[in-house]
Design a protein around this nucleic acid. Structure first.
Lengths: 340, 340
DNA sequence: GTGAGCAGTGGGAACGCTCCCACATCCACG
DNA sequence: CGTGGATGTGGGAGCGTTCCCACTGCTCAC
């Protein structure tokens, strides 16, 4: 725990070796202009010879910037590493930050005990901004971070009245797209397997389903609405329930691909042909969508784009800090495969 | 890009408000003793009122420590997020660091372009130590980092002559365990499906197989050795090949669970009963091992323990920096399920 | 010939903290 | 009544940068 001895050369030493002043050396390193070619070369040589590496702490102390952005994932490692959605989003964030010359550090917000540490880390001037993913309802974290003056962008629309910027997929528009497609295919009785009502993705996609029907002058039949929990098994169950209630339905829009996969299994069990008897549309365009039998028609959303959009918003909000936090919706499009 | 205005209170302000000196305030914050109860309380109140948060950059500048450890994963996001092994290891690392009051930052070592940035980040005094996971053969990264005086620990034994500390599962011992178990069950013709020869896990487990046979006074029959690439399909192919060559084999040790799952499928196709006709043992005890039919007997390794061990080694190496880098092997044990 | 302007440079000051030394008390002991 | 060791305390120095101002030569226009 003692202070390690200094071993690395300082800017002062580089300057001395190059025979210039500290200011000039600093200008060379930070790509400033107004440096003669001779001085520049001398400094660069000195850096090379001494193996000089700038001290980030000293720099951050004076500039009050770290060029580092934190991505906080409020989810257990297990779930994070299970869902391909996270991988895509992280990749999008990573490349976007890279292009903007920012470093990404990934943090997991774990159980309550750890929360304090996390907040401290974020607040103690380690990062210039924070991206948040997979927040649970009414999590106070974004507001608390914002209270410390740090820019925050949340991935996924927060359900509470939290006044932070967010980026989300336009779930309503996507669901409308799906329903319009089924209508266009001439389907008469379009059912839906909705997600949990307490999740934004669940309620918005149901809302889109309702609005999509309305746009086609169809009336909403409550018996055609079933609920699942976004898991495959729940989709299977819900499909069975729907078939029991309305045996002559001819289409179903599922709020995600996993439930759609379950629905396909249920339809196969029930001896219905897809798409001849019943058409199926999913949401997400997850990897599984391409490998169901038959391959699933689904609403495509791009986690990469979401990541990029989050970064854009964060960087924008740190240059124009006074701006009121806004939301941004990413549009979706339909990928037609073999289930419609 | 301009310097943001200072808005946060400094230690000096806290001290002034509490009516004490800067030194005393610092002592309170850093849990030092030799502070009167009265002064302590005054400082704590001032911190509360002002919402004071220490500036990490300033602290790091003088202490030359950041209490932060980087975990660098040299793998694409896709693969990382696909394999449960990573999740377990990260969790182990996270909890161990947490207990030691260190922060974890996760970095992905991507393509060459990004490598320079990564190295800069690590060496610029952002972190006190580096953990590396999933290095590819002869990666120079650990040596380069060490050259900058940063402690490094690698997960998985490096195949090259790199002089860094590492932690790995004792693959040889695990494979011996598997073979001994099969011998004990009275199996006569024990085959193996080995992993790629250019991966340490592949060659070591094959070595363990050979030594296990020798320990039971069995001679090695080359026809009983097949190769796979750790993928499920390759396990299936290899099993078919083995059955063709040696129809009367009665056991097979697979270098990982995924290949074992493939082998089970092949055995089922070939009409062999497991374990009556052929016993199967895997390696890893991955989640899939519990859900094969029948459930797979396998060598258990713990990614959590590996993560913890890596942290222990890293922290130890930073207190006793002169110590020569060493390796540490984690022992395994057998989990007997229904395939033997 | 003179002054303005500019490219280039050096180095003081400041960033916010920890370390450490000097100093002030206080109590116990001889 | 001193002396000496705890126990607290204040604040100077310094960590390695960047920022900025003052300064030096030049060139060029008038």
């Amino acid at each position: 725990m003692t202070r390690p001895p200094r071993t690395r050369p300082t800017l002062e030493e580089v300057a001395a070796r190059a025979g210039v002043g500290r200011g000039t050396a600093s200008r060379v390193i930070n790509g400033g202009d107004k440096v003669s070619a001779r001085a520049r070369q001398a400094v660069e040589e000195a850096i090379e010879e001494l193996g000089y590496v700038p001290n980030a702490a000293a720099r951050a102390l004076v500039t009050r910037r770290t060029n580092t952005v934190a991505l906080v994932i409020a989810e257990s490692e297990e779930r994070v590493f299970g869902e391909p959605f996270f991988a895509g989003t992280i990749r999008g964030i990573g490349t976007a930050l890279n292009e903007a010359d920012r470093q990404l550090v990934l943090l997991f917000a774990q159980a309550s005990a750890r929360r304090g540490d996390l907040e401290q880390y974020l607040t103690r001037q380690h990062v210039d901004g924070v991206l948040l993913l997979s927040l649970h309802d009414d999590d106070e974290l974004p507001d608390r971070i914002r209270a410390h003056g740090l820019p925050v962008v949340v991935g996924g629309r927060p359900s509470g009245g939290s006044a932070v910027g967010y980026v989300d997929v336009d779930n309503v528009q996507g669901a409308e797209l799906a329903v319009a497609h089924l209508v266009e295919r001439g389907r008469q009785r379009i059912a839906t397997i909705a997600g949990p009502a307490d999740m934004v993705a669940g309620s918005s996609r149901l809302q889109g389903y309702v609005e999509g029907l309305a746009a086609a002058d169809r009336t909403l039949d409550e018996r055609l609405v079933a609920r699942g929990d976004f898991g495959q098994a729940s989709g299977e169950q819900a499909m069975h329930a729907l078939l029991d209630r309305v045996p002559d339905l001819d289409a179903v829009f599922c709020a995600n691909d996993l439930m759609a996969a379950g629905a396909l299994r249920a339809l196969s069990d029930a001896g219905r042909r897809v798409p001849e008897d019943v058409a199926v549309v999913g949401f997400e365009d997850a990897p599984i969508a391409a490998s169901t039998t038959p391959p699933l028609t689904t609403v495509h959303q791009s986690p990469e784009d979401m990541g990029r959009a989050m970064v854009e918003m964060l960087l924008a909000s740190s240059t124009v800090p006074a701006e009121a936090p806004a939301g941004r919706m990413l549009s979706t499009h339909l990928v037609v495969r073999a289930t419609t």
